[in-house]
Write a protein that binds this DNA or RNA. Structure first.
Lengths: 351, 351
DNA sequence: GTGAAAGCGCTAACAG
DNA sequence: CTGTTAGCGCTTTCAC
């Protein structure tokens, strides 16, 4: 390979002058119409004669024209982007592979809407403050909010700013103020615990998610309903969605010295930790203890044995969220919209 | 809760007229200077008297002013966004929790640069074509490309478009054309296999990643160098990074009937599958077979026993990539930049 | 239906 | 150092 100096001898690299992008005026000129007509053709083609529309499209193709989003956004008075907000306390989300499904799906669904996905995170309270400033400063047209806690100060700021927002999961205490998409946590948990019961298990313990989240609370409620009068607090421990907390919760129950032959864990991720604790305690799964998770994440297949779980329709959730957000941003919908999706029991060998 | 009708009776919601955002002219007026001065104050404050700068900042604070990105982008002739491109064949990335680290870090590092992260994916060849169109149509200022394959048609289009691009990992066959950030795959693999050797293991098998990726190839090379003359192809199987392929590869080696007392797997994710295969074959880890992974992902801790692995500095990689991309986009750097980061051996109980 | 023209809010080149 | 003045490329009335 020649030394850089040798190359330099040839003078500056032959940079083909990056031809400026064609503008709407170039298209108009080529099509022999006015700029306004091209604009109309670009935006639905209403009030444009078919023949004219065709020639405009030909010109667009010939010039390889694409609209300049910045100019369009400026003219339309919008930003063209949507924020996917993940607040600090949901950081564990990044641990969960399913999380990528949201990003991927949002990105895909937003593109045809001419909007970009802007991923934002807040690591601590001060960053959350900044994030709130950023969002309410008009840098985005809408917000997709992941699984918030009820005490989220961000929620009140979002409400006050009247920024179109869709929450993934139900914002406890703010149900009426926001649009949201969720699954029927309670019923799903009821179903899987009922499945456990159906396989002959009688003493079913649980490690829940955080009870100040709709998922944590809903899943515990469903568990309780399925057990009915035989619900026993001594078989209940709490976690924070992390794998480690699943292990700790299970250890707590084991230490109480109560017998149990099944364990319903609030998430697959926590279930991995739970199974580690069970294994260390010498209990085999599912022989001694049947284990059920929730979410049907990749973790469910990493478990040994593979987890019986509830399929959480993340992709569908994301699609619905974008659909609703679009309605909100377009102003076609003023009041909050609520969607509840159904889940499916996935039986594998852990229970 | 009142029925919707009852609420309607109160008439349209009391919508406080969303006060239009203050513009640069409002700031100029309040500060008693010209618009140009405010603009200069906004962009570094060069050529602005300190006293004037202060009064402009006061006005900005008083009005709660923030710049309109669309207008700025239009005036500056840039888009304000950067694409994180994940092509089809890297889809498994979404399975890997570490992947979220890239999104999170990119997003965080880009914000102070006034740029947004736009996540784009291509599911199949036709989508990849569209993605190429999109990127080269001038919708983004730069590209962050995840672990590409050498046969990526996208690569040649990106080169041709001269769009600032940074590749995560080394683009085999395109090393000179792109800037990239990678780890020393070969040395890292060499180190961990040497560790295996150091613990007294003598017959070390491996399940590699795809050999047309720099990671897959580099890790195999390091394995081979560590083994030296005792390298034996019968102990080598290939995977595609997926958990399932780790299992298949391990099964292949087991079926060959050769003895081995250690297994180096190309990624933690594949290692999970490998351990499942070993367990089913009645081999215990690490007693019968020591297992080592690569990446130090969350999966490494999900494994039972926890995986000995190589810590892959994803966050550092992402930070470097953004730094380089910024240089490229700003035009401060014309020729490709290459960075190789170092890794660290993480010894846990699997080996 | 279509053209003309007025901005959208900001940057940057140019005087002074 | 600062004010003035062109645009950046597009949408959107408003006439015709």
């Amino acid at each position: 390979m020649p030394a850089p100096e040798l190359r330099r001898a040839h003078g500056p690299a032959p940079v083909p002058p990056r031809r400026p992008r064609p503008t709407i005026d170039d298209v108009a000129r080529l099509a022999g119409v006015s700029r306004g007509t091209v604009s109309r053709a670009l935006n639905g083609g209403r009030n444009v004669r078919p023949a004219v529309l065709a020639s405009v499209n030909d010109a667009i193709a010939a010039l390889d024209y694409t609209v300049n989003q910045a100019a369009r956004n400026l003219a339309r008075g919008r930003t063209g982007s949507v924020a996917f907000v993940i607040s600090e306390r949901q950081e564990h989300l990044f641990e969960d592979p399913n999380w990528g499904v949201f990003v991927k799906t949002f990105s895909r669904e937003l593109r045809p809407l001419g909007r970009h996905l802007l991923v934002t995170t807040a690591q601590d309270t001060s960053e959350e403050q900044l994030l709130g400033d950023y969002l309410t400063a008009g840098h985005v047209d809408g917000v997709l909010l992941a699984l918030p806690y009820d005490d989220e100060p961000l929620l009140s700021r979002l409400v006050a700013s009247r920024l179109p927002t869709v929450v993934l999961g139900r914002p406890l205490g703010w149900e009426a103020a926001f649009s949201w998409v969720m699954i029927d946590e309670e019923q799903s948990a009821f179903d899987i615990v009922t499945h456990l019961l159906g396989t002959g298990r009688t003493r079913i313990a649980t490690v829940t998610g955080p009870l100040h989240t709709s998922s944590g609370k809903g899943r515990l409620d469903g568990y309780a309903r399925a057990l009915g009068p035989s619900f026993d607090p001594v078989l209940v421990a709490h976690g924070d969605w992390s794998m480690h907390s699943g292990r700790l919760g299970t250890e707590q129950i084991l230490e109480r010295g109560v017998e149990f032959d099944a364990l319903f864990v609030g998430s697959d991720h926590m279930a991995i930790g739970a199974m580690q604790a069970l294994r260390e305690a010498g209990r085999s799964v599912p022989a001694d203890v049947a284990v059920a998770g929730f979410d049907d994440s990749v973790a469910a297949l990493m478990a040994d044995p593979p987890l019986t779980t509830v399929h959480n329709p993340f992709e569908e959730t994301a699609v619905e969220a974008v659909r609703i957000l679009d309605e909100l941003m377009a102003g076609r919908q003023a009041s909050p919209l609520h969607v509840v999706l159904s889940t499916e029991l996935v039986v594998r060998s852990s229970a």
